[in-house]
Design a binder for these strands. Structure first.
Length: 673
DNA sequence: CTTACTACAGTTTTT
DNA sequence: CTGTAGTAAG
């Protein structure tokens, strides 16, 4: 397919700063991919001087694949395509000397972060979860606004802020002492470095001569600063974004960065992509009319040439169960009538808890489905254990990892021993691991404890010396050496659970092996690199995308961004749910509207809303109003389908069930014939 | 290894 | 109110 005029224009404008306002489904990935090809083939850039930055590993991976397809592996060699965080990690790794940190640092995820904060603040916050969460996000916000502990203290006036700033200081000192970075550091540290260190700035500006940014509207303050420092005076860059799809402001994203861009780079060329290649005209019209209720920085009007399409439907139900039944019933009927596949349907909702009831009804009807989200692979205990071992292997100063694994599996090194060891280590200001190999330990530890500790340290040190030369063997030896499998069987609630945990561990090792070896898109990595990538949650999507089963997709609106489905159900269209109760005020309503907009624009052919006139909430039954967003849509394009007959819940259940089972029988019959 | 009770949360979560 | 995660006890 050829590029349209504005896409072509966006691809070929390479002489200055460029902002591509890419509406939903307007082919922005194609623009980025083609632009990279254009830069190399027509504009004289070498691949190694071009960097493209995304927010998710998945997006980075897709882009890599698309570019490799367009250019061929050879020409694409040396291109830097990664997430913000991975790019930051790369810079930190190369500049660790200038940053004054060790080369073998390890990474903290949010759970590690919480655990440490809880530890550090025990005396003040007493494990108050709410306060801890506040503290964590406050620290994160400070870091995202490039505010260090000293400035934070100076700017804190209330007692609580003072305390938080103090905790921030403690937390950061602890991290530095252990050679640990958190996610925010991966942006913060490179940004500070490029600000202060002219040489480093030159080095990186010379390395990255053309920069492309995807989903620009999701950048936060430090990321924008980071971008500015990377592009420098030369200002050769393209950012692609859509202010109407900014749904992460609660996480620090600043859609205002679009305005700042225009101010900071007066020469900015703005190109709008307004042709939508995804949705029917009617769906797009509804989306346009809805989003017009929001103020806009740049006016933009999407159009489609795919035909006007079917009416939008609204299914109104009497209660939540009924809503799920009617939606699923509609889906089954629709699939049957259109001879379509389950995989073409998506059910989108505002909050994760809404999925449960749909899951139940889907299960009752034996419909295959997939819920994205839920507990992450990397937050499972068995994975966290192994990750802690791997982290300690690459960074012996990682005290948190040390504490986690020193007695897992049991080595008779309990809290008392650890306490003594900790005091000793603090006095000498060395890490726990370091302290453990100190000869002076005989002063504080005796016989048995000392022996088990030294046995472990000796064995582990031996592994550490070999990670560079024979990482495979080390990883194998690690798993055997700790007898992790038998430990799992001892501690798991059931053998089946242990089996599952062991499979998870094996999965981790399979991925690890792949990463150490490298594949056609990625170079082989060192163990340290692989461990960092794991913490950055890389790897997960790789497997997910392989299993393209025929399953109904269930996900939150947030998770649906960037995806598309032929048939979409947008459920729970009620005041209090979408817009959500706590975001219903003047300040947040616009983002809720964008959330609805994102949901609507996921649909390619047909879009169905649903709502319930009754909902259980915190023990009460409430009667929510239909979402204001439904009323904002063009009513001529909507068909309201409400249940006319008044029946009791029980009758409805039987009726719904029998209708569904009748349909199922019909389908089975059709299949067999 | 299962069962039962208690405590707690109940918006979204790219890294 | 209701579901679940974690722990304690059978």
């Amino acid at each position: 397919m050829r590029l349209n005029t504005s896409q072509q224009q966006a691809v070929e404008y390479v002489s200055g700063p460029c902002l591509v306002l890419a509406g939903a489904g307007s082919g922005k990935t194609r623009v980025i991919t083609n632009k990279i090809a254009y830069l190399i083939r027509e504009a004289g850039y070498q691949a190694r001087h071009i960097a493209a930055v995304t927010f998710t590993n998945k997006a980075a991976r897709e882009m890599k694949e698309r570019v490799a397809q367009t250019l061929g592996r050879q020409e694409a060699r040396g291109l830097l395509i990664s997430t913000f965080h991975t790019l930051g990690l790369e810079i930190i790794k190369r500049e660790h000397a200038a940053l004054g940190i060790k080369s073998n640092f390890s990474l903290f995820d949010d759970q590690d972060q919480m655990a440490l904060l809880k530890d550090l603040t025990e005396q003040w916050l007493e494990g108050d979860k709410d306060l801890l969460n506040q503290l964590r996000s406050t620290i994160s916000n400070w870091k995202n606004d490039l505010i260090d502990p000293v400035i934070a203290k100076a700017r804190s006036h209330t007692q609580k802020d003072q305390l938080f700033a103090h905790c921030y200081d403690l937390y950061d000192k602890q991290l530095r002492a252990c050679g640990i970075l958190d996610f925010d550091d991966l942006i913060l540290l490179p940004t500070l470095l490029l600000q202060k260190n002219e040489e480093a700035r030159d080095r990186w500006q010379n390395r990255i001569r053309y920069l492309l940014i995807d989903e620009y509207q999701d950048t936060n303050t430090s990321q924008y600063e980071f971008i500015k420092l990377l592009v420098g005076q030369r200002a050769r860059f393209t950012v692609v974004g859509d202010d109407d799809q900014s749904i992460y402001s609660w996480r620090g994203a600043r859609p205002q960065n679009l305005v700042l861009l225009k101010e900071d780079f007066p020469a900015l060329k703005v190109i709008k992509l307004e042709q939508n290649y995804r949705s029917s005209g009617r769906i797009l019209k509804a989306a346009n009319i809805l989003i017009e209720n929001n103020p806009h920085i740049f006016e933009k009007k999407l159009f489609s040439e795919l035909g006007y399409g079917e009416h939008l439907k609204v299914i109104s139900a009497d209660n939540e169960e009924h809503e799920a039944e009617r939606v699923i019933g509609d889906l089954i009927g629709h699939r049957f009538a259109n001879n379509s596949h389950y995989g073409e349907y998506a059910i989108l909702y505002r909050g994760n808890h809404q999925s449960r009831i749909f899951e139940k009804v889907l299960m009752q009807n034996r419909i295959p489905y997939k819920i994205s989200g839920g507990t992450s692979f990397f937050s499972r205990t068995e994975i966290k254990d192994i990750m802690a071992y791997l982290r300690l292997l690459t960074n012996p100063d990682d005290d948190n990892a040390f504490i986690r694994i020193i007695n897992t599996p049991k080595r008779e090194i309990g809290p008392a021993t650890l306490q003594k060891l900790g005091e000793w280590a603090t006095k000498r200001s060395v890490s726990l691991f370091h302290a453990s190999s100190d000869i002076g330990l005989t002063e504080i530890l005796s016989g048995k404890r000392l022996e088990s500790l030294t046995t472990f340290i000796t064995w582990f040190s031996d592994l550490m010396t070999r990670i560079e030369t024979e990482p495979f063997e080390v990883v194998q030896a690690l798993l055997h050496g700790i007898h992790y499998e038998s430990w799992l069987y001892e501690t798991s609630p059931s053998p089946t659970a242990a089996d599952m945990r062991m499979r998870n561990v094996e999965q981790l090792f399979t991925w690890l092996g792949e990463m150490l070896r490298g594949d056609d898109l990625d170079e082989p990595m060192t163990l340290a690199q692989a461990v960092s990538r794991f913490t950055l949650r890389d790897m997960l999507e790789r497997n997910e995308s392989e299993e393209e089963n025929d399953e109904v997709q269930l996900m939150t609106l947030h998770a649906s961004k960037g995806l598309e489905f032929p048939y979409v159900y947008l459920v729970g269209m009620e005041e209090g749910l979408l817009p959500h109760q706590v975001s219903i005020d003047e300040e947040n309503i616009e983002e809720e509207r964008r959330l609805a907009y994102v949901g609507i624009t996921r649909a390619q052919k047909e879009l169905t809303f649903s709502l319930s006139r009754q909902r259980r909430q915190y023990g009460e039954t409430i009667n929510p109003e239909p979402s204001r967003f439904l009323l904002e849509l063009p009513q001529d394009d909507i068909q309201w389908e409400s249940q006319k007959t008044q029946v009791t819940a029980e009758q409805r259940m039987i009726k719904g069930q029998s209708r569904l089972s009748a349909l199922r029988a019909q389908i089975e019959k059709a299949k067999n014939s």
